[in-house]
């Protein structure tokens, strides 16, 4: 019975609205036309249970059709106001935006592949790679910078001559130290980055030059941590 109450409420509200609107009208000249529209609204409200029973929700459809109607009028106004050069400018803007997005995607993919290759060949744990691309003429893109940041804890010896075979290391005993005092006298280690060691730089430059032909001056290798 809830729908009945809702329906009656809607009809009463629309009839009240119609009465007030007729009072608000400035003169009698428009009364007939306004009455027509208001009558159509009341008719819609009266028919709404049947309509929704037969055709599903008609409210969104009515809204869409009114918006279409108003939108088509607006579009006509817009179409006459636009010249060919404006359209071409818009096309150029859209084109460049699309190219930028493609470049971003390509850079992310390239960075992922580089990181995987570095960690496969050198054994560096989870290197973070960022690739910057630069547009060239003719729609080509060039790698302008590769920044590799290595994780903090890495032994120098890992970058050895046989990196692909990593022998399992025995687990060392773990020492757990519990501090009960205040932690203020143990300052947090600073998370700074510094240049990675010469050896790592060499290894990573070789990998990137082999795989992607990146010139070594474009590569920047940093390592997290270090006091």
């Amino acid at each position: 019975m809830a729908w009945l109450a809702e329906w009656l409420k809607q009809i009463i509200a629309i009839i009240l609205l119609a009465g007030i609107v007729e009072l608000l009208l400035p003169s009698n000249a428009y009364q007939r036309y306004v009455r027509l529209v208001l009558g159509l609204f009341i008719l819609l409200a009266l028919l709404s249970p049947i309509l929704s029973l037969l055709q599903g929700e008609f409210g969104p459809r009515l809204e869409a059709s009114i918006r279409d109607w108003q939108g088509s009028a607006a579009r006509q106004a817009v179409q006459t106001g636009h010249s060919l050069t404006e359209l071409q400018q818009q096309a150029a803007v859209l084109n460049s935006r699309q190219q930028d997005q493609a470049a971003e995607l390509a850079a992310a993919k390239l960075a992922g592949e580089m990181a995987a290759e570095i960690s496969r060949r050198s054994g560096a744990p989870q290197p973070r790679v960022e690739v910057l691309l630069e547009a060239e003429s003719g729609g080509y893109w060039r790698i302008s910078k590769v920044a590799v940041s290595l994780a903090e804890e890495m032994e120098e010896g890992n970058a050895s001559t046989s990196p692909s075979i990593s022998s399992p290391e025995p687990i060392e005993p773990v020492a757990v130290e519990v501090w009960l005092g205040s932690t203020t006298d143990h300052p947090e280690p600073q998370q700074a980055t510094r240049e990675a060691s010469e050896r790592w730089q060499q290894v990573i430059r070789t990998i990137l030059a082999d795989g992607w032909g990146v010139a070594s001056e474009l590569i920047q290798v940093t390592q997290a941590g270090g006091e």
Binding site: L36, V37, L40, L43, L44, L47, L62, S65, I66, W69
Partner: peptide, 9 residues
């Protein structure tokens, strides 16, 4: 204004 309503009905 009434055209969309009439068309729906």
């Amino acid at each position: 204004m009434a055209v969309p309503i009439i068309s729906i009905i």
